[in-house]
Each structure stands twice: as structure tokens, then as C-alpha cells.
């Protein structure tokens, strides 16, 4: 049986990808951003994950305004890095576990989550930056060490799905994974955030106190946290901070009882507070992966 054993929360700032692609991660501005991912890369190796289920959003790259699915599941065999206006990132093509993805699609819809099925899709920095920070530098000729099932969430046009909906979707994803026969270790990523506002006269808003409470409550009060209204994200964490609803999908897919094994927080990367957390299901800890 396939199972979800751990979750990763992670910002996906495009400038982080640019810094890695340009090899400037040791510059004083970037060094503290990447330092916090060194332990994460070791942890990721130890997991020997077969599949990463990666929850992210497209930034008006692959999805234009003509069609805006709230939840779109990647069911294509592979996903190429997209040109976002300055050329595609020089990282490997992302390979799907296509049989698992189509199983999850069926299971979710019968579980009353009416997701959109993407049989062709490119992916932007929202997906590739978390892969890069967790797996380290890769060139176009390399391969990512595991397969990836992408779930793309609309957080650009208001309203994003509610935190409650995302949390419950996480539970449905877990049910789908656990009803898949192949013996697979799945790690789920929830990406985006943390506090940031990219637009207009309030751009640059950062709320460390709010972000810290959010990270704390992922372990201590995940259900209460998932009830956070949209207007609180927008006011307290900036207009683009609403991306953090995607972390609830990750949290919902884990056990109630999790242990925080790593946390990293740094301001700034470009306009954004970089937040990162690793949560393990307590009952899965120490088991041979």
C-alpha cells in the first residue's frame, strides 16, 4: 500500500531559483536563505521518497485568465519547466507517477472533490523552486531523484479555496494514496508564502509574528489554523500571503499527531519571508523507509 509519511512546507520565491541557477547562493544576501535547507536536503535523502505529491500554484504562466481551475491535478507523463518571461529554468523535466496520479484523480472525484485533470501541463517556479531547495542543484541533463504528482491550486484570482476546503482535500488525497496498491513512500509538499505582498503601495509587507504563529499552529492546532479567514491572510500576511492556504492541504494529509523536525525562517528573499517546516507522522518515525 502507498502511504504519506511526512510533509514539507516551503516558500517558492522565484528569486531563490534564479540565485541557484546563477550560482550565487553563497553571496551574503542569499547565504542565510540556503543555510536553512542544508538539513532539509539530508532529511530528504534519508526519506528515500518514491513520490512527492507537490501542492503549488501557477503564477499566470501556464494558466492564463481564460480558464481558472481551483484545483488542477497533473496527470501527464511529464511536466517541462515553463518560460515565465525570461526563459525556462535550467532544471530537469519533472516525471509523474502517472498511474498513481490517475488513481488519485478518480478517487478524489468520487470523494466529491471535483478536480480538473491536466493531461498536458508545463510547470513554473511554484513547483520547481521547492524541488530545487529540497533536492539541491540539478541541470537539465540530470533527473530528479523521485517522481512528482503536481496539484495546482488557484490562489491568484480571489477567492482561493478556503483553508478548510484545502485541509479536507488533504484528507481525501491521503485516502486516495492509501487505496493505491503499490508500496510507495509519498512525501507531501505544501508550498508558497510566507507573508509577502508584491503589488501596489503596500508592497513589501512582512509579518514575522503572524508567520511564526502559523508555523507553530501547524503542529499544535492544525484544524483551528485551517479556519483562518481569507481576509486575515490578506491583511496580516499581504495580498500574496494567501498562498499559505496550500499548506493546509499538506497538513490535512498527515496524521493528527505530527512532530516538527525542522524549521527555517528568513527575511527577505526578494519581497518575501521564506518559511520552511518539516513534519513527520509520529507513528511512521523510525520505520525503515
Amino acid at each position: 500500500m502507498a502511504r504519506i509519511t511526512a510533509g514539507v512546507g516551503c516558500s517558492h520565491v522565484p528569486a531563490i531559483g534564479v540565485a541557484m541557477d546563477q550560482g550565487i547562493t553563497e553571496q551574503p544576501y542569499w547565504e542565510p536563505v540556503f543555510e536553512g535547507f542544508e538539513k532539509s536536503r539530508e532529511w530528504m535523502k534519508e526519506q528515500k521518497a518514491d513520490v512527492v505529491f507537490l501542492v503549488y500554484n501557477d503564477h499566470c504562466t501556464v494558466f492564463d485568465a481564460s480558464c481558472i481551475p481551483t484545483f488542477a491535478l497533473g496527470c501527464a507523463p511529464e511536466f517541462a519547466p515553463a518560460d515565465e518571461g525570461w526563459g525556462p529554468r535550467p532544471v530537469p523535466v519533472v516525471k509523474n507517477h502517472q498511474v498513481l496520479a490517475s488513481h488519485i484523480a478518480q478517487s478524489l472525484i468520487l470523494d466529491e472533490f471535483d478536480i480538473t485533470i491536466m493531461n498536458e501541463m508545463e510547470v513554473d517556479h511554484g513547483l520547481t523552486v521547492p524541488m530545487s531547495v529540497m533536492f539541491g542543484d540539478k541541470t537539465v541533463d540530470d533527473e530528479w531523484p523521485c517522481l512528482v504528482v503536481p496539484l495546482c491550486v488557484n490562489v491568484v484570482q480571489y477567492p482561493a479555496p478556503t483553508g478548510n476546503r484545502c485541509y479536507n482535500l488533504g484528507k481525501a488525497i491521503r485516502r486516495a494514496v492509501e487505496s493505491f496498491d503499490e508500496d510507495l513512500n509519498v512525501v507531501i509538499f505544501g508550498t508558497g508564502g510566507m507573508s509577502h505582498q508584491l503589488q501596489y503601495k503596500r508592497a513589501g509587507l512582512i509579518n514575522k509574528e503572524w508567520d511564526t504563529k502559523f508555523l507553530d499552529r501547524l503542529t499544535s492546532d492544525p484544524v483551528g489554523l485551517s479556519q483562518t479567514p481569507h481576509v486575515e491572510y490578506l491583511r496580516e500576511a499581504g495580498s500574496e500571503g494567501v498562498e499559505m492556504v496550500m499548506w493546509h492541504v499538506m497538513r490535512g494529509a498527515l496524521d493528527d499527531d505530527v512532530e516538527e523536525v525542522h524549521r527555517h525562517y528568513h527575511v527577505p528573499a526578494s519581497n518575501t519571508a521564506v518559511g520552511h517546516i518539516i513534519l513527520e507522522n509520529v507513528k511512521d518515525q523510525g520505520k525503515a523507509k
Binding site: Q197, K201, R202, H230, V231, L234, S239
Partner: peptide
């Protein structure tokens, strides 16, 4: 969300 200063919320009307 309309009383948040210096911010546009890209809602259905804006879209």
C-alpha cells in the same frame, strides 16, 4: 478586504 490600504484584491470584478 476593501479597507486594506495600498492593496488591490484581484477578485471577480477585477478579473
Amino acid at each position: 478586504y476593501e479597507d486594506i490600504p495600498g492593496t488591490f484584491i484581484f477578485d471577480a470584478d477585477k478579473g
